[in-house]
């Protein structure tokens, strides 16, 4: 009897369709986001994350409508990220039915944005989304990860662990941590990165990027010390269902909601 570790299917949505690429290249269509969200809800997903990767303004109108449709049918927490740049973007998504919003590059451009957002809407709905890559070790030999933007192509020079600490101090209530090295590769989460950040911040951490099998999800919890594990393609393309993932984790002593 304890708080369950969460399993979170992630919908990367482009112009109204769920897509998933390998390191953002070779994108495959994975269906209608409302239908996909309903399916995961019926399977017992603990939460759903919706990442809008649409670049155009017109596409973003579609996104708001899609979030509204999901929220009217799916009564579990819904996080929406992608393109959240201003307070009004947050209000739009919360009004559309999102419970939390993920803030990523807007925080890098203006770190106070997270503080303003948390002051306005409460920490419980502000997720700091961090895309990190392993870089050359620190001078003392410790591993170092930096924040990257533009789908992992553009380095910022910001230390990912220090950034997480700073954003949580600014009011973020949760960390969505994506390893850009792992994303789409199915090689597993970056466990050292996940653990470093989970130990550094008091708030929950969601491990993301690289899940290829159920052992990766188990390791994200037991070795990465994540509070939740996020996955996309292994669920979208039917390799595993959410109940299979939960049963597998439960059999390995992880508290899950069955």
């Amino acid at each position: 009897m304890a708080l369950a570790k969460r399993i979170i299917p992630c919908l990367d949505v482009d112009k109204g369709r769920v897509v998933k690429g390998v390191n953002f290249v070779g994108i495959r269509d994975a269906g209608d986001p409302v239908e996909v969200a309903k399916r995961y809800n019926e399977q017992g997903a603990d939460e759903i994350t919706f990442l809008d990767i649409t670049a155009t303004h017109e596409g973003r109108e579609t996104t708001v409508h899609t979030v509204e449709q999901i929220a009217a049918e799916v009564f579990i927490p819904l996080t929406v990220g992608g393109g959240i740049r201003e307070i009004k973007d947050i209000r739009t998504m919360l009004n559309a039915g999102a419970d939390k919003v993920g803030i990523n590059s807007a925080a890098i451009h203006r770190p106070d944005f997270v503080k303003e957002a948390a002051d306005r809407f409460g920490s419980q709905c502000i997720v700091i989304a961090i895309d990190a890559k392993r870089v050359a070790n620190e001078a003392d030999g410790r591993p170092r990860w930096e924040i990257f933007t533009h789908g992992g192509r553009k380095p910022t020079g910001i230390n990912a662990v220090e950034w997480a600490i700073k954003m949580v101090a600014n009011g973020a209530g949760e960390v969505l941590l994506t390893s850009m090295d792992g994303d789409g590769t199915k090689a597993g989460y970056d466990l050292a990165l996940t653990r470093a950040i989970s130990e550094a911040v008091p708030v929950p951490v969601i491990a993301s990027g690289g899940v290829g099998n159920l052992d990766h999800m188990v390791a994200g919890i037991t070795e990465g010390l994540a509070d939740a594990v996020l996955a996309a393609s292994i669920f979208h393309f039917g390799e595993y269902t959410v109940p299979e993932a939960k049963a597998y984790m439960a059999a390995r002593g992880i508290e899950v909601r069955l």
Partner: peptide, 17 residues
Amino acid sequence: HDSAGTRLKVPHMGWNN
């Protein structure tokens, strides 16, 4: 911490019994 000594995150976020 829980009764086993494991550190617990705050906020209490997620599904509990």
